[in-house]
């Protein structure tokens, strides 16, 4: 899931960064709550408010005794992603298009309604791309008749891994634009000079 490899390791599971697969110098953790601290900062020491950003730090492994602790750890690493996937499989994860998300904003974010479709498309490419932005698979469109065109088709396909590794994947599903994208949309609208 995301940048994490989950392996069965009797009697439970072991988690590590997929790029740490061959390392034997990893710091060992065994409490699922440690996942919160591991995922707070990147390798560069930067705060990670978006947990699905491709910036999970390296150098750790987490041994967990059972499914319950695995779920707890994954909910700290990638909040709500397992639950969202289960909801998706029950057809209960209902994508919300960007226009609807922006349309209900109030206060300082009410202005985001003014973003144009091309501006939104360009912003989504910058904020959501899997290489530097976010590893989620996008399920929503800009509007019912306006798909996102700035990112490759794989970004919208739950069957495709968003990391450069050939591993079976539990997709992380994005049913709706997050607050980070809404906040970025506000910046776009605020910066654009009034057309003359």
């Amino acid at each position: 899931m995301g940048q994490i490899v989950i392996q069965q390791s009797a009697p439970g599971f072991e988690l590590r960064h997929f790029e740490d697969a061959g390392r034997n110098d990893l710091a060992l953790y065994s409490n699922p709550v440690e996942a919160r601290a591991i995922s707070t900062y990147s390798d560069a020491g930067e705060f990670r408010p978006l947990k699905t950003a491709p910036t999970l730090r390296h150098g750790w492994r987490l041994q967990l005794p059972d499914l319950e602790s695995l779920r707890t750890a994954l909910d700290f690493f990638y909040p709500a992603m397992l639950g969202s996937l289960l909801s998706h499989e029950r057809n209960e994860l209902l994508p919300v298009d960007l226009r609807e998300t922006l349309g209900r904003q109030s206060g300082m974010y009410a202005v985001t309604k003014k973003i144009t479709d091309p501006q939104a498309d360009a912003l989504i490419e910058t904020v959501c791309n899997s290489a530097h932005g976010c590893l989620k698979t996008i399920l929503w469109q800009i509007a019912p008749d306006r798909p996102v065109t700035s990112l490759p088709a794989e970004k919208f396909n739950p069957a495709v891994s968003q990391i450069p590794a050939a591993l079976p994947v539990l997709p992380m599903l994005c049913a709706e634009a997050c607050n980070l994208l809404v906040a970025a949309a506000r910046e776009v609208v605020k910066k654009v000079p009034v057309a003359e």
């Binding site: 408010p49 978006l50 947990k51 699905t52 909910d75 909040p79 709500a80 639950g83 969202s84 289960l86 909801s87 994860l93 919300v96 049913a175 709706e176 997050c178 607050n179 906040a183």
Partner: peptide
């Protein structure tokens, strides 16, 4: 027991999928 946030993950919108 879960926490959700306005400006961080998990978000308010994801809350019901956590529970």
């Amino acid at each position: 027991v879960h926490c959700v946030f306005w400006k961080e993950e998990p978000s308010l919108r994801q809350a019901l999928h956590l529970i």
